[in-house]
Nucleic acid binder design. Structure first.
Lengths: 187, 187
DNA sequence: GATGACATGTAAACTGTTACATGATTTG
DNA sequence: CAAATCATGTAACAGTTTACATGTCATC
């Protein structure tokens, strides 16, 4: 939130940012955003003023205060925060054996692959649009756009790797299915 | 938790599992595990009995009930849960421009690369130990071990891709630094 | 007998989601 | 004027972490 509030934005605007550029690695609901903005204002990290909307009712526009910038920089200079990412679908994969049904496991993996494929395609469209709308993309972008580009690039790379893993896994699982069927027909 | 409780375990044992094989995609504290076990028992998903420990005080041993197995299978058959993973360090990367200091940004990325390198090395050691202790690894493993192997393989693959992205990003950033310095010396 | 690992829990604080509630403004 | 979007919020619940509290058993 502090990062986004380098430029003035309303809570509603912030939600749009979460839905657009940040959605690959962070999300937040309006019901979390509004109280947090109020809390941050009480703490002196941001300041608000009223602003007219181009379209729709008036907004409350927040912007980072000096204290907020200091806090943001402190967070950035702490170094990378890693190691706490949860991946729900991996928890499911981990326990697929419990179904004791290789066909169900394979169809699980296929639908995972399909979802991943969709997501990577969506990111690639974002990137190709960016590329065609800005001749500076990617290496001559201003810093404010270059770092977001890096996060997009990682999103594409990771999802691509995940898609390949799905295909690898499917191949391994299909081999196991043949094995199982061979055994069964021996009975 | 239901997945793990196919075999009987105490809360303390479950914590060990989270610290070992599941740590790459899921974690939980004892203070979350114990109340949850109690809640699940009240709901009839698991049953508990007392059990002696090899070492240390007696344990409360939980095991999945039929209802728990049903619930686990329902969850698995729902299909993949995706799209809500948060990656804190990407939020940091996104806003690195705010520091307005390419050297700080580069040292951020270097320390990210170092952390990723460490993690991938740790996973590779787990895998190579597994491989040397079990000749069936990976394709002839029993299902109960094969699916955990898949999650380990994805962990390695994703971290590897992330490490490559760090190196790519560092190269791009170093080019930008030279650019900035060239500009500065023109003044 | 001190230390550390084993073992189980509670309380308070914090974080996040879902549901509810309200109302303004724009567009068809 | 109906529906969609814009805009801001609260309340209840669910999930998670940190700190606190207690006690057992094995090893040095």
């Amino acid at each position: 939130m502090l990062g986004l509030l380098r430029e003035p934005h309303s809570g509603y605007d912030i939600k749009k940012h979460f839905e657009q550029s940040l959605r690959n690695f962070w999300q937040a609901e309006l019901s979390q955003i509004y109280p947090l903005l109020q809390k941050m204002e009480a703490e002196g990290l941001v300041r608000s003023r009223h602003g007219a909307s181009d379209i729709g009712p008036t907004k409350r526009i927040y912007k980072r205060a000096q204290k907020g910038t200091k806090e943001l920089h402190r967070w950035l200079e702490e170094g990378p925060i890693i190691g706490k990412d949860r991946i729900s679908y991996l928890a499911q994969v981990y326990f697929l054996a419990d179904l004791d049904d290789i066909d169900k496991a394979i169809s699980y993996m296929k639908s995972l692959r399909d979802e991943i494929t969709k997501k990577v395609a969506a990111l690639e469209i974002i990137e190709s649009n960016w590329r065609s709308n800005d001749t500076r993309y990617p290496n001559d972008l201003a810093d404010e756009e270059f770092y977001p580009h890096l996060t997009l690039a990682l999103g594409i790379k990771r999802l691509g790797a995940t898609g390949e893993w799905c295909e690898d896994s499917l191949r391994k699982m299909q081999v196991r299915r043949r094995w199982t069927n061979a055994k069964r027909s021996q009975l």
